[in-house]
Design a protein around this nucleic acid. Structure first.
Lengths: 146, 146
DNA sequence: CTTGACCTTCCAACGATGGGAAGCCCCATC
DNA sequence: GATGGGGCTTCCCATCGTTGGAAGGTCAAG
């Protein structure tokens, strides 16, 4: 099948299929006489594997390792688990970082009147976090432990 | 002061200061006869504002808006709050997406023996999520609601 | 044979940041 | 006054995953 069909069937865009071929994540596709790439259902299967891994947030380098393990019939599931665990740790780190940001911002938003007046704790914090945030934290603390 | 000192004082690297100038986030710095950029404490203040906003995950476009509001003495705090709220929504979305990934992966990891055998639910899911994940979800459901 | 949808390659961009090269400037030390 | 080292300048490149577009060839239906 043509690359467009493979794209539809796998959920990976034609652009990305060519890209994955170019960076060596997938082998070079067969070509027809016309120069068109030709894909088999097995190729689509691989692409779906990649698509799923990307949906789970794996980086291309990790997907490369996972593909190697997938193809290796004598693999050890421990190897796969190790990669997955490392990736989870990475995800959890990013989540914690975003949570931290969101939490701080929510504290600030709670303190902001959000009306027509110019006074704004959010800007005050951006201007000088040490000045404002400590006060806000204290307020927050008193709200949480009245 | 030179760009290096401004970088140290603000926590924004010299590279990024030049970059922010180039993209118009900050005005073009004064130049000495030597061609060196010259920064005032007020400039450093702006840079620290930017640094803090980046720490809170604001994108450069949002920081641009925040800077405009910061400089606008007749601003309305509601405008700032709106930007902050939109940004939080964005953060929460990204968090939810990452949580989703981490949760799925953890379910899979729980189901993976992680030993020397090749059988691996993680790869099974990547290969065909519909096949495996439903089973895993059911298991998970039964674990959560025994 | 024409038309429109599809394919090809190549080049560029996003966002934020870092690395590095070539060349100039400034200050301290000899 | 010369020299050395560190800071500054501009410019280009890389990351990472993805998308967009231009210029041109191919295919299938009318």
């Amino acid at each position: 099948m043509n690359i467009g069909q493979a794209a539809k069937d796998s959920g990976v865009s034609a652009k990305m299929i060519r890209h994955y071929e170019q960076i060596g994540l997938i082998p070079k596709a067969e070509r027809r006489d016309s120069g068109y790439r030709d894909y088999s259902p097995a190729d689509v299967h691989v692409l779906r594997f990649i698509r799923r891994a990307r949906d789970l947030g794996f980086a291309v380098a990790e997907i490369n390792d996972l593909l190697d393990l997938w193809r290796d019939r004598s693999r050890q599931s421990a190897d796969v688990k190790r990669i997955a665990k490392a990736h989870i740790a990475n995800l959890r780190e990013r989540i914690a970082s975003l949570e931290q940001m969101a939490g701080t911002l929510e504290t600030l938003i709670d303190c902001c009147a959000g009306d027509e007046r110019p006074d704004c704790p959010i800007l005050a914090d951006l201007e000088d976090p040490a000045e404002f945030l400590n006060v806000a934290s204290a307020l927050n603390f008193r709200k949480a432990h009245p």
